[in-house]
């Protein structure tokens, strides 16, 4: 908690600086921002991905979410696969436009499918450093070579490049400062950790 507050305070300064730096180009685009066009000035800073292969899709960093989890509740075989429920007990998140902590009380309703793919179904609440609440959900998939998945199952640290762990987060908030989250499509790259997971989330611009 104390650590998070220090982090929030430190980053609060950075955030103001970022906002100040963004202010000038924002003026011209303010109307489009107000009317919901996501192609604001920051969009031009988006990191073009895979353009070399002829796709127009581009993204930019939204935030990194670190989730601390309690031991999984192993429900065993259910009609659609093997179900485990992982309670979320805390965590934090940080990105260029938002930061704060993960509130306890959410969870990830995991389903191991018969084809070896683990389906993720997460619901958590984020609280920003300025006390806005954001409901975040995602669905995703995780799979990889059997030895890698077995190592993850034993709680070992594995290079995330060795398995596929991707999610599509969605957000809901009533806070005006973060309403942009209601209007974006995002993709997360996950990394399993012994006590939870780290998700690097990009906004699709």
């Amino acid at each position: 908690m104390h650590k998070l507050e220090i982090m929030a305070e430190r980053n609060g300064i950075e955030r103001r600086d970022v906002l100040k730096a963004m202010a000038a180009p924002v003026v011209a685009a303010a109307m489009s921002t107000l009317t919901g066009c996501a192609h604001g000035p920051a969009a031009t800073n988006g990191v073009a991905t895979a353009n070399r292969r002829g796709t127009a899709m581009s993204s930019r960093p939204l935030m990194t979410v670190r989730i601390a989890a309690a031991p999984p509740q192993r429900l065993g075989s259910v009609p659609h696969g093997v179900r485990s429920v992982v309670p979320v007990i805390g965590g934090d998140f940080e990105g260029p436009r938002l930061r704060g902590k993960v509130l306890p009380g959410g969870g990830d309703w995991l389903l191991q499918r018969s084809d070896g793919v683990l389906e993720l179904d997460l619901r958590i609440t984020l609280e920003t450093d300025d006390h806005a609440l954001i409901y975040m959900t995602f669905q995703g998939v995780r799979h990889g070579p059997p030895d890698v998945i077995a190592a993850l199952g034993r709680g070992e640290v594995v290079d995330p490049a060795r398995y596929y762990f991707r999610t599509v987060p969605r957000f809901e908030t009533s806070a005006d400062a973060y309403a942009f989250l209601n209007r974006i499509v995002a993709v997360g790259t996950g990394e399993a950790t012994p006590d939870g997971a780290v998700h690097k989330i990009d906004e699709i611009v």
Binding site: A56, M57, D115, V117, G140, V141, H143, Y164, R166, T167, V168, V185, V187, I204
Partner: peptide
């Protein structure tokens, strides 16, 4: 296709 995440424009 069962195992991938996709995005579209």
């Amino acid at each position: 296709l069962n195992r991938l995440i996709a995005i579209s424009s």
